[in-house]
Each structure stands twice: as structure tokens, then as C-alpha cells.
Design a protein around this nucleic acid. Sequence first.
DNA 1: TGCAAACTTTACCTTTACGTAAACTTCATA
DNA 2: TATGAAGTTTACGTAAAGGTAAAGTTTGCA
Lengths: 137, 137
Amino acid sequence: MMSTIHSPQSTYSISDLSKEFDITTRSIRFYEDQGLIKPKRRGQTRIYSLKDRVRLKLILRGKRLGFSLAETRRLFELYDADKSSSTQLNTMLDLVNEKKSALQQQMDDIKVVLMELNSAEQQCKAALEDNSAKKNK
Amino acid sequence: MMSTIHSPQSTYSISDLSKEFDITTRSIRFYEDQGLIKPKRRGQTRIYSLKDRVRLKLILRGKRLGFSLAETRRLFELYDADKSSSTQLNTMLDLVNEKKSALQQQMDDIKVVLMELNSAEQQCKAALEDNSAKKNK
DNA sequence: TGCAAACTTTACCTTTACGTAAACTTCATA
DNA sequence: TATGAAGTTTACGTAAAGGTAAAGTTTGCA
């Protein structure tokens, strides 16, 4: 099932994607189960499109940022949703603003922790030099 | 058990902390269970120190960044560890660098997602204006 | 002294995000 | 043709991070 033609591929097998993103096929099927991706089928074999691949990338990035699969699915749904419904658009705006402020908070957290880690690193290095100066094992 | 004196308090009850950080007492005891904090006891009542409070804050910040409790505990352990053991110091350096690059990656992720969210926000607003111009419900 | 609020332990329950195993089908190819 | 790789479904298991309930202390204070 492994496709050999590279570059701008337009369909992918499940193992193509599991290798590319270094996740198990189990995970990919699970995301489908949860309604995050909807690959076509050829017989009972799943055929993934470019859109599916983009979504996978978004799912994984979301995960790195602590989004639950349910949250990510919600974002997908809204993104696909009816653009003529003002109610939907407002719901989306609310969600977007919620996410934005959460991410701002995360940015701030990260900056603080990075500074602390840098400081810890310096202390470690200093202590190591100190140790080697004193020549104790 | 609620202490009434404010400002630089030096001990706290479990409910003091649960209120301050807006988490349940169950969570606080769970963190203790997992070896992240070690409050003193008066009888069987837990007495939390400033250090415990700082750790709680660190635990929660870690959680916001997607650190597991086990990871946070590991960082605490290394921080408390023997500063004369070069092996330990090197282990710590490794862990610190690992965390640093993960956080850098997160920062990059966040920047991308923030840009996308901003763009989504603009599109929503434009669509809303469009809708109201066309006066459809 | 005697309640009510706050504290405690113990223990089982829940959700999320998969892992793992079993048993089956499809397909290329030796 | 048969064997092995890759795919599939179904189903049970698991780890993390608590929630919740039961049943029992402790303590302030009216």
C-alpha cells in the first residue's frame, strides 16, 4: 500500500501517514472514530487526501498545545460551518477569543519557565566546573 | 482551619490553598500522593509551608504547559538533588535541554496558531458585516 | 456539652487517548 | 498457490488526573 511517488502526493495510505507523523495507525483510526478526519474508502481500505493530511498535522499541533481532541474537532466543525449564520459566526468568534487568550497565557508561562530553565542550566554548569576544579569524582 | 491573617503568611491550610488556586482539596492531596509536595502535619491535619505553596504554583503552571505530574516531580527531585554529583548534574542538564527545546517548539506552535486564529477572527468579522449588510437573519 | 464545619482516609468511578491482541480480508509476488 | 505484508474490525486493557461517596476525626464555639 506504500506509495513510492514522492513530492506533491494527493492521496496517502494509513501507513504513509503513520510514518510521516510518527504515530501509530491505531491513533489515526482513533481520530477518525472521534470524527476528526473522514478518509474515503477503496473497498474497506482507507484513502487519505491532502485535506486529511493537513488535519492530522493540525490535530498533532493542537495536542502539543494541550488541546483535547474534542476541542480540535469543535474548531474543525466551526471552520466548516455555515458562513451565513451570524449565530454560528459569533460562536466561532467567542471560541477563537477564548483560545487566543489561553495561548497568550501559555506564551507568558513559557517565557517564565524558559528563563528559569536557563538559570538552572547556568547553575548546573557552574556547579560542574566547581566539581571538576575540586577534582572529586 | 481558615487562617484570617493575610499578606506574608507562612503556613496554609488545605482549604486556603484550594481557594487561592481554585482547585479541589482532592487534587492537592493527590499531588502529595504522587510525591510532589510534602506538607507537615499537626495531628493528622496537613500544614502547608511557603515552599509547598510555591510548588503548587509550579505544578499548575507545568500542567498548563502540558507537563505530566511525573515530569514535574522529576524536575523537583533534580532541583533538590545532590549538587556535588556530576552525574546528577548532567542528568539535570539533559532534562533541562529537553524541556527547553520542547518549549521552543511550543512557542513556535503558538505563534502559528495565534496567527491563524487572528486570520479566522478577521474572516468572521468580515462575514458578519457582509451578513448584516445583506440584512439576512 | 454538643453541634456543625473542616479535616481525614479508603475505595471505587470516570474520562481521554490510545495500546494490545485476536481473528479476519486483500493483495502482491515468489 | 501459498505466504507474508498491510489492511480491517472488535474488544478489552491501561495510565493519568482527578471526582465522588462513605465513614470517621477534630475543633471552634454557642
